[in-house]
Design a protein around this nucleic acid. Structure first.
Lengths: 335, 335
DNA sequence: GATGAAAATCGAACCGGTTCGATAGTCCGG
DNA sequence: CCGGACTATCGAACCGGTTCGATTTTCATC
C-alpha cells in the first residue's frame, strides 16, 4: 500500500503539502496540485482512513444502533440513512443490541472508540442511569423511535398517542364496545402513548374499559400470545382486540386461529405497525403504520446537518413527530 | 481521555513497559505489573482501539456484509456471529449492500481500510471480475449462502439441490403431475441448484415438465408476482406451484388470493425458506427451511478459527453444506 | 566476587496521516 | 527600490499506541 510519503517523494514536495493539497486543493498552486495528482495516480495512493481518524480525532463513519435489525421498521430507516450518508461521503456501521441495554452501551462505547462522526440511536432503555449514559455521549446524535424522558437530544418518531386513538376510534365507529387492548411495556414511551391513546379515546366516547380487557403483551410474540389467550378464555369475550404492536397482534391472530375463532367473524383485530408480507396474511389486518421512509429521511438529514455544520451542531435538541397512517384491512367487522 | 503516557508517568515506568504489561502481563515483574495496574485504574485508562489498530495493522472488528439485513435468514447468522465474536473479544460491524455488487465492493474496501480482523460475506454477484475481487481480499474470510464458482474460500451453506428435490418429491407423492416452478436468477448458485433439484426429481419420476410451467421469479416479490400470474392464466393450470424462495412463493399466494383461487383447494403451494410470521399465514405453507442457527454457528467458529489461529488460517478452503429440513404445512393437498 | 545467561525495562522508530507555526517566494503600491 | 501583505511550501510535533533491538538488572553458578 502506498503511503502519503511515497506520493510526496514522487511529486517532489513535502508530506504536509500533499496532505494539504488532498484535503484542500484550493490552497496549493495549480502546478503542484497537478504534480501531486499524477503522483497519487501513479502510485495508486488511497489515504488510510484509520490514520486519518487518529490524526483528526474523528472518522467518516456513522453508527446506527438498533434493537433488532431484522425488524422491517428499521429497514427503511437504515436504507435512508445509508443512502444519505453515502451522498455525504459517510459510511454507516450497523450494530444490533438485541434490545439489551448493557450490550447497547458496550456497542455505543465501541463506536465512540472508533471516533464515529455521528450516532443514530434507537434507545432500548430508560431511567436515570440510562439518561445519564446517553447524555454523556458527546458525538452528534439523533435518537429515534423511542422517546426517553429526560434525554436532551434530537428525537424523531411517530405520534403514538394518535396511533392508538385512531384504531380505537375506528373500532368504536364500527359499533364495538367490548374492546380489548394488548399493551406493551409501559416504561416504553411508544407503549404508554399508545395505551393512553386507547384509554382516552374510550373515555371520551363514554365507553368504560373492562379491566380484564387490558392485558400486557410486552411487545413480544410470546407474551402477546399468552395475553391473547387470557382474553380469549374469558366468558364474556371482547368483540375486538387492538394490538399495541405488530408482534402482539399477530400472536393474537395465531391464538384465535388455534382456538378456532374466526377473525373478523367472531372477533375483530387491528394493530399498530406493519409487518412484511402482511398482505398475504388472512384476514388482511387493519392497521396504523408509521411513515418509516420519511422518518429515515429526517433522521439522516438531521444527523448529517449536525455532523457537517457547526451551526446546526449548536442548535438545541428538537423533536420531529410524524403522524401515522391508517391502512384499512378486512379484519374488523361492524357489530 | 487518559493516554498510555499518563499511565507510564504515574507508574514511573516507560511507555513501552506499560504497553508490554497490558498486552502480555507475564513478561513483566509482579511489582511493576501491580504499579501499572493501579496507575491504569487511577487515571481510568482505556486503550484507544484506533491507535492500536493503526500500530498493529489489524483491529478487533469483524465485518459482516449481507444483501439485506432485514431478511430473517440473516438474523440468526448475525446473532450467532455476534455472540461468538463477543466471547472472543471481537466486535461485529454489519453492512448492507442492498444486493448491489458495486456497493458491496465499496463496503468491503471500506471495511478492509478499517483493518478488520475477518470478513463474513454473503456474495451478491458472480463471474470472473467478481471472483477476482473476492480473491483479492487478503483478510481471513468465510463466504456463506451463495456458493460462487471459482472462489477459493471457506463456504457455508445449505444443500439447495436437496431442498428443491425434497419439495418436488413431496408434491409427486401427493399425486401431483402438473407442477410449476417459479425459479430464481439462474446465475445464482442457490437458484440453479434448486432448479436442478426440481428438474432431476421430476425426470427420475418420469414426469415431463411442461415448459410453460417453469417461470422466472428472480427471487423477488414483484417478479414472482408476475411469474405467478403467468402461471395462473394458463388454460391448463398447474395443480401445484413450487416457489424457489419465500418471496416468489408468497407473491404467488397473493396472486392466487387476488384471482380468487383457493390454496390448497385449487392449487397447492410450497416454498424454500421460511419467513417471519409464516404460521399466521393461511394456509400454513409447506416448506423446506435452512438451519440458520447452525449455519451461523459454523460461520462464526470457522471465521474465528482463521482469525485467531495461524494454523487454521493456512488451511485450504473448505465447504460446509448442511441439509435443509422439511416443515409440513397445509398448503398442499393430495390429488 | 567475578561471570554469564536470563529476565526486566527502556528508547527509539514506526504505523500513516494532520496541523500549525515558520520560512521562502511573489506581487503590489508608494 | 523598499516595505508590507499575501501565497505557497515546508518541518516538526502530534494523534496514541506497538515493537524490536539495546541496555540494565537480577540471579544462579563457579
Amino acid at each position: 500500500m502506498a503511503t502519503i510519503r511515497d506520493v510526496a517523494k514522487l511529486a517532489d514536495v513535502s508530506v504536509s503539502t500533499v496532505s494539504l493539497a488532498l484535503s484542500n486543493p484550493g490552497r496549493v498552486s495549480q502546478k503542484t496540485l497537478e504534480k501531486i495528482r499524477s503522483a497519487v495516480a501513479a502510485v495508486g495512493y488511497v489515504a488510510d482512513p484509520l490514520a486519518q481518524s487518529l490524526a483528526r480525532g474523528r472518522s467518516k463513519m456513522i453508527g446506527l444502533v438498533v434493537g433488532n435489525v431484522g425488524n422491517p421498521f428499521f429497514g427503511d430507516i437504515r436504507r435512508e440513512l445509508e443512502n444519505y450518508a453515502l451522498e455525504h461521503e459517510h459510511f454507516v456501521l450497523i450494530t444490533d443490541s438485541s434490545g439489551k441495554p448493557e450490550r447497547e452501551q458496550a456497542l455505543v462505547e465501541h463506536l465512540i472508540g472508533l471516533k464515529i462522526a455521528g450516532l443514530a440511536l434507537a434507545p432500548s432503555s430508560f431511567g436515570a442511569d440510562y439518561v445519564k449514559f446517553v447524555e454523556s455521549i458527546k458525538v452528534p446524535m439523533v435518537c429515534f423511535d423511542q422517546k426517553v424522558a429526560g434525554i436532551e437530544r434530537d428525537f424523531v418518531g411517530s405520534d403514538n398517542y394518535l396511533a392508538g386513538a385512531m384504531l380505537t376510534e375506528h373500532l368504536l365507529q364500527l359499533g364495538h364496545r367490548r374492546i380489548a387492548f394488548i399493551a406493551g411495556p409501559q416504561h416504553m414511551h411508544t407503549a404508554s402513548e399508545r395505551y393512553r391513546g386507547f384509554m382516552e379515546t374510550m373515555a371520551s366516547a363514554g365507553v368504560e374499559v373492562n379491566p380484564n380487557y387490558v392485558v400486557d403483551g410486552q411487545f413480544t410474540r410470546s407474551a402477546g400470545y399468552e395475553a391473547a389467550m387470557r382474553l380469549l378464555i374469558q366468558p364474556e369475550r371482547p368483540t375486538a382486540i387492538l394490538g399495541a404492536n405488530n408482534a402482539v397482534a399477530l400472536a393474537a391472530l395465531q391464538a384465535m386461529q388455534e382456538l378456532g375463532f374466526n377473525c373478523p367473524g367472531d372477533i375483530s383485530l387491528c394493530m399498530i405497525d406493519d409487518v412484511q408480507w402482511s398482505n398475504v396474511i388472512t384476514p388482511r389486518i387493519t392497521m396504523v403504520v408509521q411513515d418509516t421512509l420519511k422518518l429515515g429521511g429526517i433522521i439522516a438529514r438531521r444527523l448529517l446537518q449536525r455532523i457537517t455544520s457547526s451551526d446546526a451542531a449548536a442548535e438545541p435538541a428538537q423533536d420531529f413527530v410524524l403522524s401515522p397512517k391508517f391502512v384499512p384491512g378486512n379484519s374488523c367487522r361492524r357489530v
